[in-house]
Design a protein around this nucleic acid. Structure first.
Lengths: 185, 185
DNA sequence: AACAATAGTGAGTGGTGACTCATCTTGTCT
DNA sequence: AGACAAGATGAGTCACCACTCACTATTGTT
């Protein structure tokens, strides 16, 4: 791949992230091109359809999150790492509104299974470590954690909610994950 | 208002609910008209813009929820009423995807403050009663509950998640709301 | 029955946005 | 340097969709 092509590809991704962040998923491809400083044809050369562009953004975000999780597995405190990941993800989400809500909508038939699987693996590891120290209740399963993560993200999408409310809300969820006082299932 | 006008207004709202439920918010107004069995002009006579139509749907949903909450305040068991409301809302949401996500997106400048305020009042009452029986931790505030409700709704939007996962996830949140084991804020 | 007033109709308009392609430009390799 | 493939360009195409309006139909009333 030629050097200029590579540079433009990057520019387009950055621009797309910004444009979709504050224009919603209906922001036009032309706006992306403008912000990237390229012609619209160039955008379509790199991403044949708009959906392809969105998918690339999602993949990128998931990759980042997976890396973060892996990092916490390797270097974090097992007692708190899972909770830290929650907080990190929520904050990252707040800055990536559109992409996340599309991801959530699952609308486009997405080849995301792969990346999402990796993320799930990383979270599973965080969960396991939390449970082994007793900081997280032993009954809890990965799919529940993933569901809580997604829900928390969605909550974070609300511009109206300040960081304070986000934290207080997360605290309730964390308490639920720690406590032994679980009613029978 | 003439009888036929009233009938058509209802038909349009029902149709819109169905259409937006499975076509997403970008479903066309013409599709709504078709499903309602009226001409497109009729839709626009009742709801001058598409946003007006969406707003009407939201208002309707919020009204239903507020009624449900009021009913639980009046007739429910204070110990569990708040949790029952959570469950009810989550299930109702699963059947109202688009409307809820638009509501969440808060995108259209919404005259929703009124209806939303009523719902908040009803939830505040449920919370107060739960706390007075000791079934809900005394520290918890309404805005946190509302945030959790919205997040839970969003979670429920995922077709992929079965009712079982939804319940297990909610159980964790409920445990968090009950427990005394809260780390210092 | 006659008559307003209210409501319904649907072809048409304007605007937008995803995507194409003939043409020009640039990077890279010998 | 020269040549050529890879890349960039942007005016143009096409489809779709929110919304309008001149006209027709239905109500409810006297």
């Amino acid at each position: 791949m030629r050097a200029d092509a590579q540079r433009n590809r990057m520019r387009i991704l950055e621009a797309a992230e910004a444009v979709f962040a504050d224009g919603g998923p209906d922001a036009s491809t032309e706006e992306v091109a403008r912000r990237a400083g390229v012609a619209i044809g160039t955008v379509f050369r790199h991403f044949p359809t708009k959906a392809d562009l969105l998918r690339a953004l999602m993949k990128r975000l998931l990759q980042q999150l997976t890396d973060d999780a892996a990092d916490l597995v390797a270097r974090g405190d097992p007692q708190t790492a899972l909770f830290e990941f929650f907080a990190l993800l929520v904050e990252r989400t707040a800055a990536n509104r559109t992409v996340v809500s599309l991801l959530a909508a699952e609308g486009m038939d997405l080849p995301i299974t792969g990346p999402l699987g990796s993320l799930t693996d990383a979270v599973r590891e965080l969960l396991k470590r939390g449970q082994s120290t007793g900081a997280v209740h032993a009954d809890i399963q990965v799919d529940e954690v993933m569901a809580l993560l997604v829900s928390a993200c969605q909550g974070a999408l609300h511009g109206g909610w300040g960081i304070d409310l986000r934290q207080r809300t997360l605290n309730i969820v964390f308490a639920g994950m720690r406590t032994q006082d679980r009613r029978p299932r």
